[in-house]
């Protein structure tokens, strides 16, 4: 597992760990806490860490320290930005995800689709879970195995899922993958098997992209983001308004989206995705390999 940067000092982590809550919508009782250190961890620090470590500048402390002193409440609203101008279709994000989560080949939690635009040019479109603000997959589950956390992640409780697959029907993005057979065996993981880190997968249940939720509090970027050699994928936080990609580029999220006319996928479905696409067809690449 590659780590971008440890954004949180041990001391800070310990200081804030106990006060953290598990947030989720809709309300169910007893959901396991997966975002320990939600009050401080995460993107602001990740960003500052990247800046400090990779680019050698002083960490920007504003967002991070503000977050650190906040009450025990989710202060992040995770989002993703996918810059299609840079995607060359190498699918390293997919393989990194499958390696980290011990997935079978057909379980492409982040799937790179080959698309075609009106000019007949083909381009590549990575599709993780959209982490919809209004996720259609959540209300259809008969046993509340799907839930949405306070910081905007849709997760699956694989210890409860009974495998009706109605959420696979509901998701308009085909982002859900079933475990049709025994999962790939996984060695001991740094996190327990929980919705935020569903490794190994559980046979007979649904799995999907979790934005590597268990890694975010400690300032690590999701596997796909950190493994994208083109810097296509950004992890963003709507709360602190920053986004960072695997190359260490940090941007002001809202400005970046506005400047580049970002769109969401299937807006008309009312899902309000938290994955923002910057339209393009790989034109920012040096080669024109991505064209038709």
């Amino acid at each position: 597992m590659r780590e971008v940067k440890r954004g949180v000092s041990q001391e800070e982590a310990q200081q804030h760990e106990p006060g953290c809550q598990i947030g989720q919508v809709p309300v169910t009782v007893g959901r396991r806490g997966f975002l320990r250190g939600a009050a401080l961890g995460g993107l602001g620090l990740a960003a500052s860490g990247v800046l400090g470590g990779t680019l050698g500048t002083a960490p920007s402390s504003s967002a991070a320290s503000a977050a650190g002193n906040a009450p025990a409440k989710a202060v992040h609203q995770w989002a993703m930005v996918i810059d299609l101008r840079n995607c060359n279709g190498c699918k390293l994000c997919t393989t990194a995800c499958q390696t980290a989560h011990y997935l079978h080949e057909d379980q492409t939690w982040i799937n790179v689709f080959t698309m075609q635009n009106a000019a007949g040019e083909s381009y590549y479109m990575p599709r993780p879970c959209m982490m919809c603000e209004d996720p259609p997959c959540v209300p259809v589950c008969p046993v509340k195995a799907n839930f949405r956390t306070e910081d905007g992640l849709t997760l699956v409780d694989q210890s409860r899922c009974i495998g009706t697959r109605i959420c696979m029907n509901a998701c308009p993005y085909q982002a859900r993958y079933f475990n049709w057979r025994a999962p790939r065996p996984a060695p001991r993981q740094p996190f327990p098997q929980e919705p935020a880190w569903p490794v190994p997968q559980v046979e007979g249940t649904v799995g999907k992209c979790v934005d590597c939720a268990a890694m975010l509090p400690s300032g690590k970027l999701p596997e796909c983001v950190s493994h994208c050699p083109m810097g296509v994928l950004y992890l963003g936080d709507l709360e602190t308004d920053v986004a960072v990609n695997g190359l260490g580029n940090t941007v002001e999220l809202s400005q970046f989206l506005a400047d580049n006319d970002a769109v969401t996928f299937k807006e008309s479905y009312g899902t309000h995705p938290r994955v923002f696409y910057i339209p393009g067809h790989g034109q920012a690449l040096d080669t024109d390999a991505a064209d038709g």
Binding site: P139, V140, C141, P142, G163, N179, V202
Partner: peptide, 23 residues
């Protein structure tokens, strides 16, 4: 039909009921 039929009891366990589910 169920992927995890051994958990079918959850369908008759009211605390787990999600009344918004068509199933």
């Amino acid at each position: 039909h169920l992927g995890s039929p051994w958990r079918i009891w959850e369908l008759v366990w009211p605390p787990y009921w999600n009344l918004s589910s068509p199933i």
